[in-house]
Nucleic acid binder design. Structure first.
Lengths: 104, 104
DNA sequence: TCGGTTTACGTCAAACGTAAACATA
DNA sequence: TATGTTTACGTTTGACGTAAACCGA
């Protein structure tokens, strides 16, 4: 009984920020995308996770509980992945080429 | 540092079954799809999760560790979702209509 | 009006299925 | 040969961005 996983990710970020806009920035998508992902999750669960206030969203009681569980699960995956991952996120991009080409 | 989530799901199922074919059946996709999802995850992690044997796959040591963590995380989401979900997976589809229409 | 969320619509890429290739008991 | 995995290729569809609408302080 797993929900759409991408919507779960949007929810987790939005619940942390209590803002779709901030969540969108974190996820490098538009706030529109976050809005739809969360609506999708709410439809899947058939309940509201957020109350929409004016210029703000707040978690419902059910949303708050779900957030705790989801954040825990994601954190577990995150830790396991960091521990395992061999390809450390390099900041540097190495480019090899011929000097003749480089000179142009 | 989260991996592609859909590939994580394929991995979890394949690790449980120790078979891409069985995992595919569980996920209602083709075994080809599972194969590619797992390759994607292995590329993301830059390590092998399975050793490919003839007509079988076995988890590497790293794969085994990862499986435990991932299964735990998924299980946590699963439980939280079941607990919360209002729309219980009904087997029955209720259709309302006017009797005049029904009679046709 | 202003700042955040929602929605309509067209686009794109990730994920898919089919089918063929591959590998080994 | 038979069974499970991999790969090539074309297609589908879920997720997206843009932009407009909406909504209440």
């Amino acid at each position: 009984m797993l929900p759409p996983l991408s919507s779960l990710r949007a929810f987790e970020a939005a619940a942390r920020h209590l803002s779709f806009t901030k969540a969108a920035e974190e996820l490098f998508v538009t706030q529109s995308a976050v809005s739809r992902q969360i609506r999708l999750l709410e439809e899947f669960l058939d309940l509201q996770l957020f109350e929409r206030k004016h210029r703000a969203v707040v978690l419902t009681a059910e949303g708050e509980r779900y957030r705790r569980d989801v954040t825990g699960a994601f954190s577990q995956v995150d830790i396991a992945t960091r521990r395992l991952r061999r390809k450390q996120g390099r900041e540097v991009l190495n480019i090899q080429t011929y000097t003749t080409f480089t000179m142009r």
